[in-house]
Amino acid sequence: MLNTFFMILQRDVKLALRRRSEIFTVLFFFIIVVSLFPLGIGFDEKMLQGIAPGVAWIAALLASMLALERLFEADYADGTLEQMLLAPQPLSVLVFAKITAHWLLTGLPLVLVAPVVGLLYHLEAETVGVMMFMLLLGTPILSMIGAIGAALTLGLRGGGVLISLLILPLYLPVLVYGSGAVYESALQSGNIEPHTLLLSAFLLLSLIFAPWATAAALKISLE
């Protein structure tokens, strides 16, 4: 079971690294969205520090939403997804491997690029640290819940927009607690422990249920 997990993981990462540009599209999308807000709202430092957590998280949400479509699309097109359905290993393990690969290529870079947001928004190092930690906790949840949406809308016209309509409402708790924690540490320097606990609880729940739900959704879409 485990080596199939790593086999699929390795395969997906290798495939994605061949088309490296796709990874950077998500990254640059995140940076562009983040740098749009000051142009739109204003350059006052105090205000920028105030909106930074929300902006960073909303940009992360949109960026991971953008990348979701590619999660199954390629395999669906050339039929490997059907093979995966027929594989002896449980489908949720294969799907979990694909989601992890997807997170490594889209979620993790967002975490690594967070200091840029800190730069643009005059955030202190400590706040940027908290933001990176929260993004580290939050982006896997985004990938996993998003994977269910991607599986449901497989092969549909206008799938990309449809996924966001389906899945964005379900991202709200991650947004609320993710940006809440950063806001808490930046301004009131209150403790972010409850936020971390809640996000990790949400992470564990989606770790358990998302792959199974995505597998079920895939079986429905590919019947």
Partner: peptide, 11 residues
């Protein structure tokens, strides 16, 4: 969602 909307700041 209900919990996060009713209690956005657990502190």
């Amino acid at each position: 969602i209900y919990y996060s909307v009713n209690c956005p700041n657990p502190n």
